[in-house]
């Protein structure tokens, strides 16, 4: 799901040498990048067979699990960083998994498509659900079952007593710190358990 630019931006947020758990790691590209360029080690969690195979091909540790079943396998604060990159929007138990992310990782990093990005707002104002490069699906076939905004996540984080360490947007691979809820297609939050 996450493209190369997002991956580069996320990788910069991960401290060198971190022990990383990547929830919904896809084909393992981000983990491979973190291993290669940031000296990180860790595991990806993935449900899809083809992605699990792709991770094995890359030589990235991957554990085939359904995130909807939780993270019972992992102990409290057992990872330096837990990533949820373009994963949250697919989870039925998004709030539970957010709490789990903060439990298992000293640091949590979440990125997801920001539904309040201005082109999306315009589209809804025009009476139609947005279909963009970032949200390329029609309303009737989207795998994104949790549609939220940068601002929404801040509220959810507060509700779950998470301490937000950094929050910004990503647009065209660049960090958006001015009005990210309006100006960025991707919302990024870095947080820890409060």
């Amino acid at each position: 799901m996450s493209d190369a630019l997002i991956q580069q931006s996320i990788a910069r947020l991960v401290p060198e040498g971190s022990r990383v758990l990547d929830l919904g790691c896809g084909d393992g590209a981000l983990l491979a990048l973190l291993q290669r360029e940031r000296g990180c080690r860790g595991y990806g969690i993935e449900l899809d067979d083809a992605n699990v195979h792709a991770c094995v091909q890359r030589g990235v540790n991957v554990i085939q699990l359904n995130l909807d079943e939780g993270l019972a396998m992992f102990g409290d604060r057992s990872f330096d960083v837990v990533l949820q990159i373009d994963t949250l929007q697919h989870l039925r138990n998004a709030e539970t998994m957010l709490r789990e992310t903060a439990r298992v990782g000293r640091l949590g990093i979440v990125a997801f498509p920001n539904f309040a990005h201005w082109p999306n707002r315009l589209s809804v104002l025009g009476g139609r659900m947005p279909v963009t490069r970032r949200l390329p699906y029609q309303w009737y076939d989207t795998p994104n079952i949790r549609v939220g905004t940068h601002a929404d996540f801040a509220v959810l984080a507060y509700k779950n007593s998470l301490r937000v360490l950094d929050a910004f947007g990503l647009q065209e691979g660049r960090e958006v710190r001015f009005l990210p809820n309006l100006m960025a297609g991707t919302a990024v939050f870095k947080f820890e358990r409060g």
Partner: peptide
């Protein structure tokens, strides 16, 4: 199998796990 995976993760060993449907 997941019990073994967990034990390996607890010890920070390199492990991959495929659960074939």
């Amino acid at each position: 199998s997941r019990e073994i995976v967990k034990a390996l993760v607890d010890n920070r060993r390199d492990v991959s796990y495929a659960e074939i449907d």
